[in-house]
Design a binder for these strands. Structure first.
Length: 478
RNA sequence: GGUGGCGUAGCCAAGUGGUAAGGCCAGAGUCUGCAAAACUCUCAUUCGUCGGUUCGAUUCCGACCGCCACCUCCA
């Protein structure tokens, strides 16, 4: 059974077959950089990251493109409020975006195109649409003529009459049809603008994704990812623009990520109920936040509660403890020695194999991270049981368990001990050593030299040196 | 008004036409001089309500109740 993806276009789970054998092209709708991202935004970025990692794990050559929207109404408004230029604001926040996402363990995309660096491509695409009679100019603005695209609504399954019945469609007299949308917006005084055949102005929101996706990935891309709120109108409009211009399918699989909720409702910037990712990262390790964000399937809403991250923290601790125990054995023991063929050993080996199969099945079924994590934790229980009496299992089997758990955890990004830097280790070590020194001081006070020396000697073996002086003991790493 | 989704133990959350993964919490235990930590075990005859289809439904169908989202910028 191959990899299956739920395609929002067909509303069905579909077998994934790439356009080009062994390659996957992915376009992900990135942030509008008028502020820091919150953990709800991070969910989409994280799911994208895991989808990419899993494709790579399965041997695909992945090209991921994620745009940065660096000019729009909100950026202009925020920049004005802060007394800086829109480009300064966009620059600072896009840098913050990279900082925050990398702290969460998200690898940068292969290309991060910016809207303001693709104005010529957008103008060209708009001109094509005008030539095809799919767009019209009014007072320096250009609108897309929705009626020109027969399949309009195929993604969101909205009928024209449904849209018009909705009370929230604002009627712009200049539009031929209320559903028509901006391709190019004529500049208002004081706004940033670019020169165009229709006068000074700036691009509409949807056109940037069409232009940049096609420029960097070609006229047809494999997978287009975004938050579920983008399905309409953003993605519907992208399809309309792109497919009418090229005559090709724009994206073959549409992946939409459900919202992160907080206290039962959507976490959103306009709702002002968000938590910045960077604030969460200041309080919790990246693996903990990742664990929480992928503890539900990406198409289901996930509710953030005050102790959600504490729950994840405990779970991650369980994972880490098991891996550390295994690592110790894997690194110190000689696997050629202990050759067991006990029932215990066979049982553990079977559990490892079962887990590998189930993990792959879970991820192959529309990237079911919640189920995939379940398989990891099931194996952990098995391993811990074996570890209670390690003489009954072979080192080889334990090493296998270590490698399998580590590898799968790293696909999900919930284990990164290998990447921890010295400073992190130092932070863990410090209180531990202080405690040791305290105990040792007690022993010394009782003239328990046996204990005192043992502590000093053993620490020396792991390259930690204790030095005694009149006013207490100190330690240092050698 | 239109469209889509959800309702599974104290909490979070997978999943399936054949009788419920996993995590957290809690209880019991192992270990320990005592704690802590760690580990082990236990923890839903039941999947919003009521009907229907079926040998059998939590899973399919219908109705109802409750919640959420999109239709306006939002991941």
């Amino acid at each position: 059974m191959g990899l299956r993806i739920y395609n929002s276009l067909s509303r069905e789970l579909e077998e994934f077959t790439p356009l080009k054998d062994g390659h996957v092209s992915i376009y992900s709708c990135g942030p509008t950089v008028y502020d820091y991202i919150h953990i709800g935004n991070a969910r989409t970025a994280l799911v994208t990251d895991i989808i990419r990692r899993y494709f790579e794990y399965r041997g695909y050559n992945v090209k991921l493109v994620q745009n940065i929207t660096d000019v729009d109404d909100k950026i202009i408004a925020r920049a004005n409020a802060n007394g800086i230029s829109p480009s300064q604001l966009a620059h600072a926040n896009s840098q913050a975006y990279f900082d925050d996402t990398q702290r969460l363990g998200i690898q940068p995309a292969d290309v991060h195109p910016r809207a303001t660096e693709h104005i010529p491509e957008m103008i060209e695409l708009i001109q094509t649409l005008i030539q095809k009679d799919a767009a019209y100019v009014v007072d320096g603005s250009v609108y897309y003529r929705v009626n020109a695209f027969k399949e309009y609504g195929k993604l969101s399954r909205r009928k024209p009459e449904d849209l018009l019945a909705g009370a929230r469609v604002e009627v712009d007299e200049r539009k031929e049809d209320p559903r028509d949308f901006d391709l190019w917006k004529a500049a208002k005084p004081g706004e940033p603008y670019w020169k165009s055949p229709w006068g000074n102005g700036r691009p509409g929101w949807h056109i940037e994704c069409s232009s940049m996706a096609m420029k960097h990935l070609g006229e047809t891309i494999d997978i287009h990812i975004g938050g579920e709120d983008l399905l309409f109108p953003h993605h519907e409009n992208e399809i309309a623009q792109s497919e009418l211009a090229t005559g090709c399918t724009f994206a073959r699989y549409w992946v939409h990520i459900a919202f992160l909720k907080i206290d039962g409702s959507r976490m959103g910037k306009s709702e002002k109920n968000f938590i910045f990712l960077r604030d969460a990262l200041d309080k919790h390790p990246a693996e903990v936040i990742r664990h929480f964000l992928i503890s539900a399937h990406y198409r289901h809403p996930l509710d953030y509660a005050s102790d959600s991250l504490h729950t994840s923290e405990s779970a991650i601790k369980r994972l880490t403890n098991c891996l550390q125990a295994l690592k110790k054995i894997a690194e110190t023991a000689d696997s050629t020695q202990n050759q067991k063929s006990s029932d215990e050993d066979k049982c553990l080996m079977a559990a490892i194999q079962t887990m590998q199969t189930r993990f792959a099945e879970a991820m192959d079924t529309d990237f079911n991270t919640a189920q995939a994590m379940g398989t990891i934790f099931s194996l952990i229980t098995q391993v811990n049981k074996s570890l209670m009496d390690p003489t009954e299992v072979s080192i080889k089997t334990l090493k296998k368990a270590y490698n399998v758990i580590r590898e799968t955890s790293q696909i999900l990004g919930i284990y990164s001990m290998d990447e921890k830097n010295v400073e992190d280790t130092f932070t863990y070590l410090k209180p531990l050593l202080e405690l040791l020194l305290e105990i040792r001081q007690d022993a010394r006070n009782k003239k328990d030299w046996d204990t005192s020396d043992r502590i000093r000697d053993r620490l020396k073996q792991i390259n930690i040196e204790i030095q005694d002086s009149h006013d207490g003991s100190t330690w240092k790493l050698l």
